[in-house]
Design a protein around this nucleic acid. Structure first.
Length: 868
RNA sequence: GCGGGCGUGGCGGAAUGGUAGACGCAACGGACUUAAAAUCCGUUGGAGGAAACUCCGUGUGGGUUCGAGUCCCACCGCCCGUACCA
């Protein structure tokens, strides 16, 4: 064995090839009409200052796809940028006195360097940050176009106010009643806000999910639920003894079929009728106030009892003038869904049943299961406090009796649509969505300024496009809480573009989700002086493979889908669905350690002793705290820089792809990383040992087995990479490496074996190149190639070599495996039967019993069935 | 509550309804070495057996099928998402 092979040194090799790729502009993409394109995009990072292992995993996957597609002949676009606006920059300014701009751009520089050390095949010539005026200028221009198109609305509304971050949050940013970033309890405030009319597209956004067949079903379902379509009926009830101006009460229901099961009305505490009725009823007013105070936290909702207050008012049943139903204010009715009022049908709605039982209201079942046993059961359940919400047949419902609930729905709707009340139909079919318009105003400095001017005489005036961008002023102070733009002495004072009079700028900035809602389109033409160059977008869009975390399943992905529609409506883009195929990768997790006093301990400080884990320096006993997502607070982070320095980028990349399927959480372990590193060294040795054997000779029969393995590996890895099954592709590569190693170990080899070896090793290098690009380049050079791997085509499997001419067929007797035989591929039953019946193992298993069936699955299995 | 996913060796995980455990890690045995590291070779689901071989085995219980980790039903457990949405 050649003992003179030097160890593979990633510290010199990796920077060398990175420089080569940069120098040769290997990854700069240009439109080439007629040539198939492939757009790979990973969700761009927030420039927090350092990349973490999650980034390493995300960008490695994207890079493998990009390099693989590139080798396979596609014109690949693989860009990178920075989601650079947002609160951490401002927090840094407040806490440490650094300017958000310098903080951000310094972080970008640091992270760019880190990403480059990973050897990603990115087109850096297209890089931008969303805080570049050259980027947000187009965002502002498009907003003005959206305004003209009626996609923007300014309205005073109750907003979620984050008292820690001093900003408004979108509903989507409120999690369990707390700010998604600060974790502070959210308050309700009344403010004038800018909204994007995403609800104009509710139906389209819902329906088009059906077209996104390359998205995970889970994400589509989450979006479906978020949009929350329901079909129901708006229904007006005449009120009796109501305060002035409240002659009727409009409710929304999805179950008009259960109208004859009505036993009470319930309205939200914020409903105008509740307010009016409270005026001369202090007790009611107090109850409404307590409902408002109850809050929206999950804990509050889960523990809250159904509570109500009888207003003393009555509503008249729309189908029976003599039927009067009491009106309650109830704590479980939300003002911002439907009309903030319902009719309660306790037998078929659990909340209504809880409420009715508490306040002694009637419970009349009106839907009965068709099956008699089920019907009896449902009656018992209802009496015991469990509502029945299944299908069945209508009862106790006059003209609806005997119908299905579906028919009854239509029966009630058809009838009441024709009944007039105060000159209007008393009922109207109505589709309701849970989706709200998107509030985009933020009272922050480090965001894209909203390009409008408030003029006392002209009102809202958009900034003329020639005056864009509206730049953020740089001389701001963060001494006072609230928005530095509002505090700035001069910035907001301008002349009205319309009348020339004194006016003020809007000081709110955009929600940063806007920045990330169109960046994918900007990458097509990052230097164009329009938001998106139509020809470039036409060529590159949509994104063929988008990769990111599941945490963006709703917000970012839904906003982006809306944005592309809005851009289409304003002529900026030619298509509506930006992401053709979506992949959501799992997290990187790591074991956690805790000291006896409950403090988190860095894994690097934990050592294994006979008595379990101890602190490496103090010797204190440690407990393992479970395998969790890497986070600074739990100290279970591994720094990518450290890993790349000690093992190299290729090893880190390889580990990230090995063993665990990409959609699952991967556990970072030192042993696993070390294993990956050993494999890089092994490949390096094999390549060197093969290289000295010289150029490829001619093939003969002795090399056939290895050639077959190599070509089958090419076919399998190609298929696996096409389908993002990285862990399987890697297993195949280990198999090929093992096969190569076996031949290399032999004391003597035939010329044919040497030729096969050369071919197998070259294939191996090209196949692992997307995962370990630096090692592949270096190996390729050692093998004597003058052209770099990035400029070499993906290997092709020879069908003659992947085809099997002999197959192993398993022999079963009564479904139990008893033997296996090697037979020519395609062996028929006529050939197989005598062979199989002659087997000693078969006659032993049959034990003289007659064969009743002889099943042949060609090239797979033979199953002999006999009486037992 | 509702919705979705998952449950396979010591571990990560393979397996178009067709030989369960590919591949890797760990462990054990061996070669090389003064020794160790590195490397290479071998063994490794459980039980029984000297061996041939036999039996058991994919959370539990049923079912469909010649054949089930895979499909169907019920249950148990874990994970994720989500909610007074009328």
């Amino acid at each position: 064995m050649s003992a003179t092979i030097e160890r593979y040194n990633h510290r010199t090799v990796e920077p060398k090839w990175q420089a080569h790729w940069t120098e040769h502009k290997s990854f700069e993409a240009k439109e080439e009409p007629g040539r198939p394109k492939y757009y790979v995009l990973e969700m761009f990072p927030y420039p927090s200052g350092r990349i973490h292992m999650g980034h390493v995993r995300n960008y490695t996957m994207g890079d493998v796809i990009a390099r693989f597609r590139r080798a396979a002949g596609y014109n690949v676009l693989h860009p990178m940028g920075w989601d650079a606006f947002g609160m951490p920059a401002e927090n840094a300014a407040i806490e440490r006195g650094v300017h958000p701009k310098s903080w951000t751009y310094e972080n970008i520089a640091a992270m760019r360097k880190q990403l480059k050390s990973m050897g990603l095949s990115l087109d850096w010539s297209r890089e931008f940050a969303t805080c570049d005026p050259e980027y947000y200028r187009h965002e502002q221009a498009m907003f003005i176009d959206f305004m003209e198109k009626g996609l923007v609305e300014r309205k005073s509304s109750k907003v979620n106010w984050d008292p820690v971050d001093h900003t408004v949050l979108a509903n989507e940013q409120v999690i369990d009643g707390r700010g998604w970033r600060s974790g502070a309890l959210v308050e309700q405030r009344e403010l004038s806000q800018w909204f994007l009319k995403i609800t104009n597209y509710s139906q389209d956004l819902l329906q088009s999910l059906d077209r996104l067949d390359k998205w995970p079903e889970k994400v589509r379902l989450m979006q479906r639920n978020w949009i929350g379509r329901s079909e129901g009926l708006l229904l007006r009830w005449v009120l009796e003894g109501a305060p002035a101006g409240h002659t009727e009460l409009e409710i929304y229901t999805t179950r008009p079929d259960t109208l004859f099961g009505a036993s009470f009305m319930a309205i939200a505490a914020d409903h105008p009728l509740a307010k009016a009725a409270s005026a001369d009823n202090p007790e009611l007013a107090a109850f409404c106030e307590s409902c408002r105070r109850m809050g929206t936290s999950v804990a509050a909702i889960e523990t809250a009892e159904k509570m109500g207050f009888n207003t003393g008012l009555f509503a008249t049943h729309p189908l029976d003038p003599d039927w009067k139903v009491p009106v309650y204010v109830a704590n479980f009715i939300l003002m911002d869904y439907g009309t903030g009022a319902i009719f309660g049908c306790p037998a078929h709605d659990q909340r209504d049943l809880d409420f009715a039982r508490k306040y002694g209201l009637p419970v009349t079942p009106v839907v009965r299961p068709v099956d008699a046993v089920a019907a009896a059961q449902s009656e018992k359940d209802i009496a015991a406090g469990t509502a029945y919400d299944g299908d069945g047949v209508m009862v106790n419902s006059r003209f609806l009796d005997g119908m299905s609930p579906e028919a009854a729905f239509a029966g009630v709707a058809d009838k009441l649509e024709k009944v007039l009340l105060a000159g209007r139909p008393v009922a109207a079919r109505k589709v309701n969505f849970r989706l709200r318009d998107w509030g985009v105003s933020r009272q922050r400095y480090w965001g894209c300024p909203i390009p409008v001017i408030h003029c006392e005489s002209c009102g809202i005036v958009p900034v003329p496009k020639k005056d864009l961008p509206v730049r953020l002023p740089e001389d701001v102070s963060f001494d006072k809480p609230g928005n530095p733009l509002a505090h700035h002495p001069t910035w907001k004072h301008v002349n009205c573009p319309s009348c020339g009079g004194r006016a003020t700028r809007e000081t709110d900035t955009f929600d940063t989700f806007i920045d990330s809602s169109w960046y994918y389109a900007r990458f097509c033409s990052p230097h164009a002086d329009v938001p998106v160059d139509p020809a470039a977008a036409k060529y590159w869009m949509g994104v063929d493979q988008y990769i990111g975390g599941i945490e963006h399943a709703i917000l970012h992905l839904l906003y982006s889908r809306f944005y592309s529609r809005a851009m289409q409506a304003t002529g900026h883009l030619h298509m509506d669905e930006p992401f053709t195929s979506l992949f959501t990768q799992g997290m990187v997790v790591h074991e956690t350690f805790k000291s006896a006093s409950g403090e988190w301990v860095f894994p690097t400080d934990a050592a294994k002793s006979e008595n379990g884990w101890v602190h490496a320096t103090t010797g204190e006993a440690l407990t393992t705290g479970g395998i969790e997502k890497m986070s600074k607070s739990k100290k279970n982070v591994v720094d990518p820089d450290t890993i790349i320095e000690s093992y190299g980028a290729d090893t880190a990349r390889w580990f990230m792809l090995s063993d665990t399927p990409p959609e699952r959480d991967i556990e970072w372990t030192d042993a696993g990383a070390a294993g990956a590193w050993k494999f890089t060294q092994r490949l390096w040795r094999m390549v060197n040992e093969t290289a000295v054997l010289g150029e490829k000779g001619s093939h003969d029969a002795s090399g056939l087995p290895l050639r077959q393995t190599a070509h089958r590996t090419i076919a399998a890895v190609t298929d696996d990479l096409m389908n993002l099954r990285f862990n399987r592709a890697i297993a195949r590569l280990y198999e090929l490496a093992n096969a190569v190693g076996t031949i290399l170990q032999k004391d003597s080899r035939s010329a044919g074996e040497n030729a096969a070896l050369r071919e197998a090793v070259e294939s191996l290098v090209l196949l692992f190149a997307p995962m370990m690009p630096h090692l592949a380049e270096e190996c390729w050079r050692v093998l004597g190639h003058g052209v770099a791997v990035v400029d070499t085509a993906w290997p092709k499997a020879d069908p003659a070599l992947t085809a099997l001419n002999e197959v192993t067929v398993a022999i079963q007797v009564n479904g139990k495996r008893r033997d296996e035989i090697k037979v020519p591929k395609g062996a028929t039953r006529e050939v197989l039967e005598p062979m199989v019946m002659a087997l000693e193992s078969v006659s032993r298993a049959l034990d003289g019993k007659p064969v009743s069936k002889f099943i042949v699955v060609p090239d797979r299995i033979v199953n002999i069935v006999c009486a037992n």
